[in-house]
Amino acid sequence: MKILMIILQLILFIAAAPFLSGLIAKIKNNIRLRQGPSIFQPYYNLAKLFSKGEVVSQTASWIFWVAPFVLISSTLAAAVLIPVLILASPMHQMGDFLALVFIFSLGRFFLALAALDTGSSFGGMGSSREMFISSLVEPALCLVVFSISLQFNSTDISAFSGMHALSVSCIVSAIALFLITIAETSRVPVDNQETHLELTMVHEAMILEYSGRSLAIIEMAAYIKQMILFFLIAQIIFPIAALETVEPAQTIFWLLWYLARIIIIAISVALVEVSVAKMRLFRVADFLGFAFVLGIIAVVCAILGV
């Protein structure tokens, strides 16, 4: 049963994660009065990449080869760590909310090394910027974890997975987590997924030398990470009780609301992306400083019990 749950959850993430990116791209295009590619374009891209051969730099060492696997395995490990379908996560004995932060950094570490491995300046640039942004994300993320955990008296992710009263602290930490998500999923105003301009790209610069299946794996990991973060925000700001009844009408309503929550987050990300301009890299420190301050406010609210 437990194994089944784990596999089901993995399949859910792998199957649904690219859709969110397709959706965000579609919304962005429609707002800009363009038709844009289909919502399922990420799936087509993955299929295309998987069927292609790849070109690997002759400078690259084994780090370049293993990085995609470390990235995908750490991201999937994070995916089974959070409770999605039932109240307790299937692997909640593996780690808690704090461990999740560290698990994400494992994949990032290897990707940043792989970027340096090919000896291209773009890779180095991306690697340096990515580590810069992620190291500034860390304290804000830590405060978000603290403020949430303080309210539920435990750092277990399952502790806040059920229906819970919506407090001020929850809302503020959800906003902070939203800003963090924008930085972590390389969205405007921190990074831009759509451009390959050397002055601005961060994540794209890191993976510039990847192609074929390795690139597909990295893209997949990015989609899954994005879905995990969206899911966490949704869980904090739109609490939902676990599925207990078997009545069909109720189940359908539950499912719809369940998906709608994540889609609401995706839509807000798209709206943010079209409405702000990309920041200079050094302004990102201010952006994440704001997330940090929000984190402190969330902790203060949690202490005051509001």
Binding site: F109, L116, T118, M131, E138, C142, F146, I296
Partner: peptide
């Protein structure tokens, strides 16, 4: 205590960046 913890998190983030540099520049590429 929460702020101290956040500073510890910042430290570990910066340490990761530093060791990407130390390993990447010393051992990788040409």
């Amino acid at each position: 205590l929460a702020v101290c913890a956040a500073m510890l998190a910042l430290t570990s983030g910066l340490a990761a960046a530093c060791f990407v540099k130390a390993f990447g520049i010393t051992f990788l590429a040409q």
